[in-house]
């Protein structure tokens, strides 16, 4: 039997994450892992985000259910933490905004009645970090996104699937990466 391999944490900018709406499973077992396929062909089962927590709100009725908004240079991630994410929920309950945070989490999607797919993050952990870590993350994510854009010509089945679904045009993502990098230049 092939050993259990921990899913890698992908680096995705908020804009690309928000524009993703294709989920699929590897294998037909009900326990097969679920993935979100992004427009640049990242196969995401877990992601790592560093950004600024700008809003938080307890939207739960009976028990606590926290919603947070984490911004990066390209947009923002919605994160939801309830009783099954006790550590993350506790963090959100106690923290101040704004704050630089690092989040490890799973992508989650919700299809509205109109058929629009909304993406959000179910955090496994949230922790406080400093501004330097945030800037490094932006540079790392730019690098990984750029690598994926360059790989869009490859015959990788995920890349082909992504191009079929989202279209082959990727100029918006290279300009997104550029904007993100320029924002770092201004900060320095």
């Amino acid at each position: 039997m092939a050993g259990y391999v921990r899913e890698v944490s992908r680096r995705i900018f908020a804009q690309e994450f928000r524009e993703s709406n294709l989920t699929f499973k590897d294998g037909d077992d009900q326990y097969s892992p679920q993935y979100l396929l992004t427009p640049t062909g990242a196969k995401v089962n877990r992601l790592f985000i560093v950004g600024t927590l700008i809003e938080k709100e307890d939207i739960g009725t009976d028990s606590e259910y926290w919603r947070g908004r984490v911004s990066d240079p390209t947009g923002s991630f919605m994160i939801y933490a309830g009783q099954y994410q006790p550590e993350a929920a506790q963090f959100l309950a106690e923290c101040e905004t704004p704050a630089f945070v690092a989040i490890v989490g799973k992508p989650s999607t919700y299809t509205t009645a109109e058929g629009t797919v909304l993406t959000s993050v179910r955090p496994e952990s949230i922790s406080l970090v400093d501004g330097a870590t945030r800037d490094l993350w932006v540079a790392d994510t730019a690098k990984r996104t750029l690598e994926r854009i360059k790989d869009l010509d490859s015959m990788d089945p995920n890349v082909i699937k992504a191009k079929e679904h989202y279209g082959a045009d990727n100029t918006q993502y290279s300009s997104m990466v550029k904007e993100a990098l320029r924002s770092l230049k201004e900060d320095i």
Partner: peptide, 21 residues
């Protein structure tokens, strides 16, 4: 603690981007 020069990295990445567009 990795301490690569962020400014240099950003410039290098921006340069690589020119090749994409």
């Amino acid at each position: 603690v990795p301490s690569e020069d962020l400014d240099k990295r950003v410039s290098a990445l921006l340069e690589r981007l020119e090749g994409v567009e």
